[in-house]
Amino acid sequence: MLYLGIDVGSVSTDLVLLDNDLQVVEKLYLRTRGNPIRAVQEGLRTLKERYRDEDVAACGTTGSGRQIASVLVGADAVKNEITAHAVAALELDRDVRTIIEIGGQDSKIILLRNGVVSDFAMNTVCAAGTGSFLDRQAERMGIPIEEFGDYALKAGMPVRIAGRCAVFAESDMIHKQQMGYNPADIIMGLCEALVRNYLNNVGKGKDIRPKVFFQGGVAANKGMKLAFERALGFEVIVPEHHKMMGAIGAAILAKDAVSRTGSTRFRGFALAEHRFESRGFECEGCANRCEVARIHENGREIGCFGDRCGKWSSRIASYPAKAGNM
């Protein structure tokens, strides 16, 4: 039996399949590109070629797009990213006491004590130092993001970059470039600035103790790992599936949910070929004028999102349990 976990984030949509021992047997890392439905469908289409519906014993969703994904695929568990990341990390190692997670648009710190979350924090309004910012800087410097970390490791003397704000950091970087510093020193300087920003912002006042797990897409950047280790003074562990930890957590939570309910609500891989359409409209029911997104599957409405009062989102209670070939 396999357990499917889907993490629909701002930048990437990740799908994993776990086996009975909760080992990763399949992982897909896709770009969300502002269209969570299409990203999930793309993932299912790939999986469809190798697996049958019956293989999937449970399905869970997480990430900022977890609700929409859950309606789409029929999830057994819909969980926030904090809990999902914590569950996945604890499954790997019961002794983890701190999780640093930096994703596309947000960053988090999760403190674990005795196997449960004891405190957490997320970045507030500003997304400085997250994956999208690094992406942008890599693009601006003409260096593929995958090689960003290797560049950083080549740095002799990292330059100091202002890390408080992405806009300031960028202009500071440009100034340093204009003064002729080499790219490696600038990139490592940027990593150090982002780590400083993270520790003073998200990590402010938090008791960061080892073992520390560094998760999320940004953990692939070796420069960031090194900068964290220098700042903290101890080893920072990047788990093998660091990008997929949210999805892994969702799959584990789904497995648990099904062990209680007895059967999965997963609607099958055929969903990949269904025609989904999102039609937005402004509800005129009251002065709030909520922007409601209406999701249609093959012309049939399956769910609404974005209203405050529940007038639309609670309207559709049931959708087809299994996806047929319509």
């Binding site: 926030n80 979350v117 997320m122």
Partner: peptide, 11 residues
């Protein structure tokens, strides 16, 4: 807001 509240409730 939902993510933070749900995570806090879980905790």
């Amino acid at each position: 807001v939902d993510t933070r509240i749900e995570a806090f409730a879980d905790m």
